[in-house]
Write a protein that binds this DNA or RNA. Structure first.
Lengths: 254, 254
DNA sequence: TTGGCTGACTTGTTCCAACAAGCTGATGGC
DNA sequence: GCCATCAGCTTGTTGGAACAAGTCAGCCAA
């Protein structure tokens, strides 16, 4: 009746406890697999299974040739999506660059973003959300990778119906002011947003683009902006690594 | 120069492609490890590494004695947190049970929740959010497990400062009307919420309570309710499995 | 008919062994 | 002193083997 738990579960539990209690501090190197093999008197395979378990839980990272380490926690960035693109905030704050960049800079970090603009047929779900015909519609797509202190922090892809933004500054691959403002200058006023947040594991491609450690989930934040007639003006899909973001909303009861 | 990718990566890529293209449909059983061993001409170890990779990505589930299967997708439940506890909606809809239950029932599913009430010292972060002294404060804690069609769907733990809700219906371990309403009946009116959403892998305990398949991240939704003087009245922490929830907000620009 | 049991099949756990590949500090030549 | 090389340590990849444990269909006995 003692043998139900597999050895590698027990070893993982033991190491997890040491991490939680601080005997193994973030950033600290664990004993090598060879040492753990003798310490727990099991095969290297079993040790690796235990370490793999903790890696999956996001508690460890390992580097070939160097060792396994207790994972360090990021200081999460807080994104307030209630005020993120509200016009009042935006007008009070018309510095160069967009609002995201100024939020980051205000916190003493260095923002940077790479922007790629293209015109193409949108994915089907985006087309539906923009009330476009999925088989024929064209959209202007702005794909951004956002960096904080030279580390990738988020992917942010925006889709605009092509006929709405033809010949506007949105088609320039540069840091332009937040779309709330730029769209407004083109006569397109967003008065309402609908935000949907889903959670999942990253695809292999996202993993690489964001340099994610193993076992890091992502939040996908999808914001659709509408004008006063309820016509959708754009969709922005932001992919946020779970270990470095907090999504925030302020809600008033009506 | 052909040998950079490990065998088990290649096998995982091949199977992933088959899943994405539908040659392996959701719910379908994969060939046994033995069969894959001969099909790819590798050792069982290598096959298991490849399957483990797909399991980590949330594409497979396996069951001892039965086989490995392509994971089936849940129909996600949409939670609209903008209207979830607004008084206007609540008053228009004062059926028995809380608002969550009626939302679920309205979609043709069967809601159920288990509630446990206790009085105890809150975790430090909750105490801070409620502006209580972490070393002495007491809170009334309502811990709920919410089920939809007999499957666990979310954990929802609420914390109230003990002196605010002493001798109110909130201390009864029953389905009471949504706290917006019940708090209101005790003279505590929430006029503003602050919501914070974080994403992470579940702890082992959460995994078990929610019966989560491997590689399912959770969203943690933390709502703090304030009265008109800015005094925090309660904190509700909802833990949502990523594979069966969409979090939604409607935002108007001011 | 029913109930229990068995045997075949499947994934889970554990051991052993070997080589590949990335990293680091020490050695040694210039 | 400087720098390239290399030995030795570390994790990563792969093969092979055996037994444990869960599942299920089918057989057999009551």
């Amino acid at each position: 009746m003692a043998k139900q738990v597999p050895r590698y579960h027990a070893i993982a539990d033991d190491l997890r406890l040491q991490i939680e209690q601080g005997q193994l501090a973030p950033g600290q190197k664990l004993p090598s697999e060879e040492e753990l093999t003798t310490a727990y008197d099991v095969s290297r395979n079993t040790v690796r299974l235990a370490l793999g378990r903790l890696t999956d839980e996001g508690l460890l990272v390992s580097a070939q040739g160097r060792g396994s380490f207790v994972r360090e926690r990021y200081e999460p960035a807080v994104w307030n999506w209630t005020t993120m693109e509200s016009r009042s905030v935006h007008e009070a704050n018309h510095t160069a660059g967009d609002q995201w960049a100024s939020q980051i800079a205000a916190n003493g970090h260095e923002p940077r973003q790479e922007i790629r603009v293209s015109i193409r047929r949108p994915p089907e779900d985006v087309a539906l959300q923009l009330q476009l015909d999925p088989t024929t519609a064209l959209t202007v797509v702005r794909e951004r990778i956002r960096y904080v202190d030279h580390e990738p922090y988020a992917l942010a892809d925006s889709y605009f119906p092509e006929e709405l933004v033809r010949n506007t500054p949105l088609m320039l691959p540069e840091d332009v002011s937040a779309p709330g403002g730029v769209l407004a200058s083109a006569g397109l006023i967003q008065v309402r947003y609908s935000d949907e947040i889903t959670v999942r594991m990253p695809t292999r491609e996202e993993s690489e683009r964001l340099v994610l450690p193993a076992a890091t989930p992502v939040a996908v934040h999808r914001r659709t902006g509408y004008d006063k007639d309820g016509k959708p003006l754009r969709v922005m899909i932001t992919t946020l690594p779970g270990d470095r973001h907090v999504i925030r909303y302020d809600v008033s009861t009506e």
